[in-house]
Design a protein around this nucleic acid. Structure first.
Lengths: 153, 153
DNA sequence: CAAAAATAGTTATGTAATGTAATTAAATGC
DNA sequence: GCATTTAATTACATTACATAACTATTTTTG
């Protein structure tokens, strides 16, 4: 006999990759909206936060930290510079290199944006206990490392 | 005195969103490469797997399950159909709708691709215990739900 | 029952993230 | 000193994803 069952995605839910994508998509959307009023995107916020936390950082180091191609970083730094949040200055030890620093405005925007992000995160992680968060973070880190290792083989 | 410290992304690692993005990016890259030899992308594999698991599924239901716009699904179904992995047939209860079914070849490719994915997942999750995986999956699900709820407000 | 609203699949179009290749200038290594 | 490497950039292609509009139906409703 025909049993009409509701279609579902159980077969995919067994894969961590699927859950990861679903969660990331939803989180990305929420965080993007949280950063809208600061005229920041997730990637420009990340760059700004790292420049604030690591004054004197060079673009190539930043690209390395954020795991993105140097060529892709250029435009994002352009945006941050045009908004007056960071400065690109010449390195005195390597004339090819630049030195990135946040402006006062950049540090201020970073502080406020970080608060907004933290609020969004709290709203999204509200049902996740501290113990679970710690497992989550650790597992994500392990997965990232293992996946990256697989890729570079 | 100047203490030259290595630049790092500690400030961002505190956010679940950052870890999520990093992990997803690495996992996406690995899974994409694992599916390459089947001429499948992550999204077409997902669609195929859901059609195999839910015979008779309609495109709009599939889009709903995969959380993507119907318009974006069209091209992916085109690819699967052109590869002979699925069939689109007319619904007999609703002349607007289509009914999706996998072909024999589709089921076979799905089976093999699923094995490949499972192997990749095992390699990526090797250092994550079963208990941790269970927490991970649950936490991702909670986060996805909470983030989606925030978005639709 | 006829008109209005909603739904299914599609097409067209725009945006954003990411990757690759090539260029220029400077530094490094042999 | 010359070949190689590195830093930042430019140009370009690809892919994922969102939005709006269109056609053919079905459903709702007055």
């Amino acid at each position: 006999m025909e049993v009409e069952t509701e279609p579902d995605d159980k077969v995919l839910r067994g894969f961590a990759g699927y859950g990861l994508k679903r969660a990331w998509l939803a989180v990305h959307s929420e965080l993007t909206s949280a950063l809208e009023r600061f005229d920041l995107k997730l990637i420009t916020y990340s760059a700004l936060a790292l420049i604030v936390a690591n004054p004197g950082l060079r673009p190539s180091q930043l690209a390395e930290l954020l795991a993105l191609e140097r060529s892709n970083l250029v435009g994002f730094l352009d945006q941050l510079e045009k908004s007056g949040l960071i400065r690109r200055s010449a390195s005195r030890v390597d004339r090819r290199a630049q030195v990135l620093t946040a402006t006062d405005a950049g540090r201020e925007v970073c502080r406020k944006a970080t608060e907004a992000i933290a609020r969004s995160e709290e709203a999204m992680l509200g049902q996740v206990t501290q113990a679970e968060r710690s497992v989550l973070t650790g597992a994500l880190r392990k997965i990232e490392t293992a996946a990256a290792r697989l890729r570079e083989e």
